[in-house]
């Protein structure tokens, strides 16, 4: 059993969780119905909790969150994409939560250093996935407008989904394992999308720019603004405690 946590892997997983929590936090006060304020905040809080544990494995959580530059973040480009409308957010949740649940399931089943953390997180992500699936079904099989919107969300984010299955540096999952994960992801997403009466987007799931880019510190333009907002207060008071 390996006991040393690989910092690069902790950063990659921690940044995914942190950045998505930050995006979901933007919904506060704007959700389509009060019950959904509570649901989205629950998911954001789970992710933020995961991020704090993971970043603490890699160093000081606040230094890592607030003092790194854009190019030093290792999150997937998918999670940094702006919220858009509720359907767009649900599409992002669907793609990511299925991925995260499968990935943490693998890690929890193994005997690597992430197993204990993954065992807790996999229960949380199961709920996130359920939330995303329930809403995909309702939006897909709801009204014409909701179907159009969720279909558009799925399509817009499709090109960011290939990146998820590049091997993560420091994780005990090689290209073959990730390919198997990808096949399961595709099957799960396809099943939900079809049940909802939607069609799986066409076209490539990575571009020249998006292939593995986020994990290498290459991000999209909205990310810089998100970080500016997230970091400005902390950075305005160097060395201060909060």
């Amino acid at each position: 059993m390996t006991t040393t946590v690989d910092k690069a892997a902790a950063l990659a997983l921690g940044d995914d969780a942190l950045v998505l929590a930050q995006r979901l936090g933007e919904w506060a006060g704007h959700a389509p119905v009060l019950e959904e304020e509570v649901a989205l905040a629950n998911i954001a809080l789970d992710l933020l909790g995961q991020a704090r544990v993971l970043l603490s494995l890699a160093g000081d959580e606040d230094e890592l969150a607030f003092l790194r530059e854009e190019r030093e973040f290792r999150n997937l480009q998918l999670v940094e994409q702006a919220n858009g409308d509720f359907a767009h957010t649900i599409a992002r949740q669907l793609y990511f939560s299925v991925y995260q649940q499968l990935l943490y399931g693998e890690l929890a089943a193994g005997d690597g250093p992430f197993a204990p953390l993954a065992a807790k997180a996999v229960k949380e992500t199961a709920y996130h996935r359920d939330h995303a699936e329930q809403w995909t079904l309702r939006l897909g099989d709801g009204t014409d407008e909701s179907r159009r919107r969720v279909q558009a969300g799925l399509a817009a984010l499709w090109k960011f989904t290939g990146e998820m299955f590049r091997p993560v540096e420091g994780l005990d999952l090689d290209a073959e394992a990730m390919a198997a994960l990808e096949a399961r992801w595709l099957a799960a997403v396809t099943a939900v999308v079809e049940k909802a009466g939607l069609t799986l987007p066409e076209g490539p799931r990575t571009g020249a720019w998006t292939a593995g880019a986020g994990r290498q510190g290459l991000h999209t333009e909205p990310f810089g603004r998100m970080l500016a907002e997230m970091q400005h207060l902390h950075r305005s008071h160097p060395g201060a405690s909060w």
Binding site: P32, V33, E36, D85, R138, G142, T143, E145, S146
Partner: peptide
Amino acid sequence: EGAWVRDAAAEY
């Protein structure tokens, strides 16, 4: 802006 979401779930 949330009306279409609530409508969709009700319709479903």
